[in-house]
Design a protein around this nucleic acid. Structure first.
Lengths: 114, 114
DNA sequence: CGCTTGATAAAGCAGATGCTTGAGTAAGCG
DNA sequence: CGCTTACTCAAGCATCTGCTTTATCAAGCG
């Protein structure tokens, strides 16, 4: 069964991943934690813009933010990544099962024809 | 190295998956091909709206559309799904490598302390 | 205390997105 | 031939997005 909560979670997750800058940030956080300033540094855009990207990523559950002195270090939350992964794998599994059944069916037909 | 083309592909892919109706359509096509009318049937929205969702999915490479009499049967293209999957797995791999290194490091420290 | 640093909040704006309705078009059916 | 079916195209519209700029705030530094 599918719940509205799960749907909204997946909406937020895939929306978060649909932007190049945000995928970039996720990739960089997979290497190690970083502050907002660190994350903003490579881009032409303002730190405020990056801060808003971080907000989107946080709402999706992909990252979390802590506090250390004046900085807000960001950390990847790999559990959210797993949720996206398992939705995709769900569709893939159904599809390959269907192919398997099709192949089995074709094999049987060919068997009968011999 | 990352190319602009790959980035745009991933943009289109994750944008396509960020909508509940479109994920629904992908899930239904993983079970078997369907026409636009078939796909539109369960929803309150117009067939035109569903047709536009299909356009988004097609541009992302997730599905393709053929022609048979008056109908335009839609088919899942699992290769696109793989592209999304492998991006996510890339980040996951980096992250777990990092955890492995951290654990190795901690083990060495503890070794030395004994 | 004032000044800088790292960050968020809020308002504004151009452009994208998700629908709608109305008008076509191409294929099959009488 | 007209009528229906399955669908696309196009315009319009409300809402969402991705930025910007200005303002604010809390922590540390002299």
């Amino acid at each position: 069964m599918r719940t509205a909560v799960e749907d909204q979670q997946l909406d937020a997750l895939f929306t978060a991943l649909s932007d190049r800058t945000r995928r970039d940030i996720v990739a960089r956080l997979s290497v190690g934690d970083a502050t907002v300033k660190d994350l903003a540094e490579p881009y032409a855009m303002s730190m405020q813009a990056v801060s808003q990207h971080i907000r989107v990523l946080e709402r999706s559950g992909l990252i979390s933010q802590g506090r250390h002195r004046q900085t807000r270090p960001c950390r990847l939350e790999p559990a959210a990544l797993e949720a996206a992964l398992s939705w995709i794998e769900g569709s893939r599994r159904t599809w390959s099962d269907r192919i398997d059944r099709l192949e089995t069916h074709l094999a049987r037909v060919q068997e009968r024809e011999r």
